[in-house]
């Protein structure tokens, strides 16, 4: 097998992992599979695109590529604002939709269906605003650097990998070392008891939306940077993200990252061995295998 598979798989996998962390966190605390998570990805990517272009209009200097990368300072600046915007969008959807259903103690499946409706709405509105034509953060071409052993990667790809690793570590530390992280884990295990202990569950839910949305935004920007932006970019990632979140074990951040990498590598391997046209089947096969063999996932607790 071509060693390049490893690089391609790791880079795609890092992106999946990042998206899957958002899925797994919101899933473990809100307790339903949020089909609208993918639209947070798409929204984040387009928000960053719009803001970055706006910054470029204000000052052309911001568009000049930074060092070896394909984008200028406008993108990282826009990314920070886009993360905040995506978080606000998630809070807004929660306020008008999920929050109301939660107060009524709606069943899981009603929440899932609501997320499905929200996904349709958001995705179609994005398609309306940005059209289905692919868009790009930059037009700069990048030369892939040799990494040794016949492997190559562009500086953008390496940066994406580094950012993913950094964010995973940061989220892991947040969950394990801070008070809010402790509250999040407590709410995910037992919401009623968390309240008894003094945790403000509503605040935790807000934080989780913000965090999940910000991570989705970064994953979306990565996908946009490494491939392209399309209104369906998030939708197409939904199956790999769910597969990774379930494979990793719902609620487990290291699990989600590990599983994201597994899905990415399996896809890259499949492209090499079987053919690119079967790539999207990989996530489904992995999903079926996990549900069949180990429904609690690699690092999840049983009967979660």
């Amino acid at each position: 097998m071509n060693p390049q598979v490893l690089v391609d798989g790791l880079i795609a996998g890092a992106m999946y992992g990042l998206g899957a962390i958002g899925v797994t966190l919101t899933y473990s605390i809100l307790r339903f599979a949020n089909f609208a998570h993918s639209e947070l990805l798409t929204f984040g990517a387009y928000a960053a695109l719009a803001l970055s272009s706006a910054l470029g209009v204000l000052s052309a200097g911001l568009l000049a590529p930074i060092g070896p990368f394909s984008f200028g300072w406008s993108l990282p600046l826009a990314a920070i604002a886009a993360m905040a915007l995506t978080g606000l969008l998630a809070l807004a959807v929660d306020a008008v939709l999920f929050g109301r259903l939660r107060v009524r103690r709606s069943s899981i499946i009603v929440m899932v269906m609501a997320s499905f409706g929200a996904a349709l709405t958001l995705r179609s509105l994005l398609e309306f605003v940005f059209t289905s034509k692919p868009a790009y953060f930059t037009r700069e071409l990048q030369i892939a650097l040799p990494l040794g052993g016949g492997m190559r990667a562009t500086p953008d790809q390496l940066l994406a990998l580094a950012v993913a690793v950094l964010l995973v570590v940061a989220v892991h530390l947040l969950l394990t070392r801070t008070a809010i992280g402790r509250s999040m884990r407590a709410v995910s295990e037992n919401q009623a008891l968390a309240g008894v202990v003094g945790v403000d569950v509503r605040k935790v839910i807000r934080v989780v939306w913000l965090l999940g949305a910000a991570l989705a935004c970064v994953a979306g920007i990565m996908a946009g940077l490494l491939v392209q932006l399309r209104p369906y970019m998030g939708f197409d990632l939904l199956l790999p993200l769910f597969a990774a979140a379930i494979l990793g074990g719902i609620g487990s951040v290291p699990g989600a990252m590990l599983a994201g990498l597994i899905v990415g590598l399996a896809e890259a391997g499949t492209v090499q061995l079987i053919g690119a046209e079967w790539r999207t089947a990989v996530a489904f096969v992995i999903l079926v295998l996990v549900l069949l063999l180990r429904p609690q996932g690699l690092l999840g607790r049983p009967q979660a």
Partner: peptide, 16 residues
């Protein structure tokens, strides 16, 4: 795409 957005809104509105 607005047609589809309407389906989405309809699903949410009906649930609510």
């Amino acid at each position: 795409s607005l047609q589809i957005a309407l389906i989405g809104v309809a699903i949410c509105a009906v649930l609510l």
